[in-house]
Design a binder for these strands. Sequence first.
DNA 1: GGACATGGGGAGTGCGCTGT
DNA 2: ACAGCGCACTCCCCATGTCC
Length: 340
Amino acid sequence: MRQHPSSRITPAGPVAMDPVPCTTPTIGAIMTFDPHHVMARLAVQRTIFHSEADFQHALAWQIQCEHPDARVRLHTRPTREIRLDLLVHLDGVRIAIELKHLAAAFSGVVAGENFELLNQAAQDIARHDVIKDVVRLERLVADGLADVGWSVTLSNDHTFWRPARKVDPIDAAFRLHEGRQLSGTLGWAANAGKGTTVKRDVPHVLAGHYQCNWRDYSTVIDSSGRPRDFRYLCFAVAGVPRVPGSRLAETPVVAPAPRLTAVTARDEILEAARTLANRSADKTFSVHEIVDQLRRQGSRYAENTVRTHVVSRMCVNAPDHHATVFADLERVGAGRYRLV
DNA sequence: GGACATGGGGAGTGCGCTGT
DNA sequence: ACAGCGCACTCCCCATGTCC
């Protein structure tokens, strides 16, 4: 059995981290949040995840459990163009977190739960997208939209932490193998195909310097009895100092509209949401579950209407692009919602 | 104001080719 | 034979425009 990560935790935040921050991290960020500690604690609860959304949700849950006073939000939009996996407000520090779950095939039962991870393959694109996350975090910090950023990539695919076997692969600039130093302008090799580079053809420009230092996360046994390692890679994007005591920007809260006497789509969705929340251990539900529940209730509304309501009009943390919105639901993860 | 349609983007998947 | 690499594609979620 591999050494458990909790036994290798460093005592502090970014200063003790592997990457070289591009600027000096804030004292608050150092004192309040250590992703290695969170990952170690999470590994006790969950050694494996079904998907990236599952990982995001579990990590957010772990952060919230460890920091009850923190404001943890999934899939926020700090700007119109940027979608952020996780934003944590903790002790006056805004921590932006981007997550990646890069799965290789796995089949097995872990802690009584069956896991069937399909091979995501496309490792070249995955490497590109990890660095894209770091660039995005750098931009958020530089623009003052976050105080510190963390990129956390979890994988059971050893091709990510091992060097390439091939000489000069098309994704040489994006390789993330152990010990690799990342900095400067990173782009595809000239011989990369269009199918790979389409919508990813703009080179990434890193302001900071980062070193790839994979850490053990867990070891799980697959259906053939073979141990499979999960490791994670963490990059810190350290931030600009904030004014001590400055207030956090408050999230706009939309007052709930009075309930209509007629049965609207919103009424039916709320009824379905309450039913699903009562059945769910964590009180969350997906849009798909809402649609199914409405079908069972005999709803007359089209699926698209229901989806629009759930993801937009009734969702308190969705962009306000409708004249009337309601603070009925809150998005807590990729495709997951709960009643406010 | 409520309901619906549609397009974009990202996550995820499958498969052929190449190298060991 | 198997692992790694490269590529293309589908599906789903979400944002947004428009009609009733």
